[in-house]
Design a protein around this nucleic acid. Structure first.
Lengths: 146, 146
DNA sequence: TTAAATCCGACTAATTAACTCGGATATTGT
DNA sequence: ACAATATCCGAGTTAATTAGTCGGATTTAA
């Protein structure tokens, strides 16, 4: 079994954003296209994108010939942004998201393990904020800058 | 909702090991004691400890006056050891644990996002292997070395 | 022999995850 | 105007996982 695991929503969300990054120039890209390319259920994608829009990472164009467009350049979008947009704040244990209560951990003054999870949370966020979308879709050596 | 989350098993496992570290000198400590101190169900702890034992982190003393003892000094036990003992190898997406198959991600040559999850996995392991049990139970300034 | 422990495996209840479904609404091309 | 193509919205469903329970067998010290 595995214990630190990304949800399918996050995985698909990042994959979908990567596709959007590739076709960034070509105007709005409908989810149908992304679904096809990445073999993801259209209906599931439809469920994922509202979060990305609310977080301002993409903007939507409704109606025929509509679709989604990145609202910033791929270089300005970090993987962490996507992950947080899809699922909310990243935190390894509930204890960290709530205001500290003494029942969270039952040792006298302070939760001993809390500091480890805090460190873990911070590092996870760091890693995810180090990589941006453009790095993800970087083309192979063949098409690097002239 | 949260997407990178430790299971209760891991959280309890680490807390329990911290208690064991504190009473390290005093011979075997029964789970009943730990359960009481940390307000964790005894039956649940009983389910967690076999994994810790099989990984060689603790050894058990059966029968009356029995319990569990750390098999190494707290300084030699990393949080990562505990996490892996309780739940198996740490990996953020299934794709990483299996031998690479082309259906894992549906882009032509290589999974673009894979590299990010690999980096994430490695960093998570790094963080968890940086902290050892003794750091976790380090006493407050009042009782630092004379 | 009794009490206190680990040990073992099955069972269950609750929650979450991963979709699915049906339709409403907006927009464009003809 | 109208059909086609999108996003949008919310509820429903199914499967998997998690968290925890339960009953009892085994081991051992006192």
């Amino acid at each position: 079994m595995i214990e630190i695991k990304l949800s399918a929503k996050v995985e698909y969300g990042v994959r979908a954003m990567a596709v959007l990054a590739i076709y960034h120039q070509d105007g709005p890209l409908p989810l149908r296209e992304i679904a096809e390319q990445e073999k993801i259920s259209l209906k599931f994608l439809e469920q994922i994108f509202p979060g990305l829009r609310r977080s301002g990472l993409v903007h939507s164009v409704r109606g025929s010939r509509g679709g989604y467009v990145l609202s910033r350049a791929p270089a300005e979008i970090k993987i962490g942004d996507i992950v947080r947009a899809v699922e909310g704040p990243i935190t390894p244990v509930d204890c960290l998201s709530e205001p500290h209560n003494d029942f969270c951990c039952h040792r006298k003054d302070e939760c001993l393990t809390r500091q480890v999870w805090e460190k873990l949370r911070d590092r996870i966020n760091d890693v995810l904020d180090e990589v941006s979308l453009d790095e993800l879709v970087e083309v192979k050596p063949s098409e690097t800058l002239t």
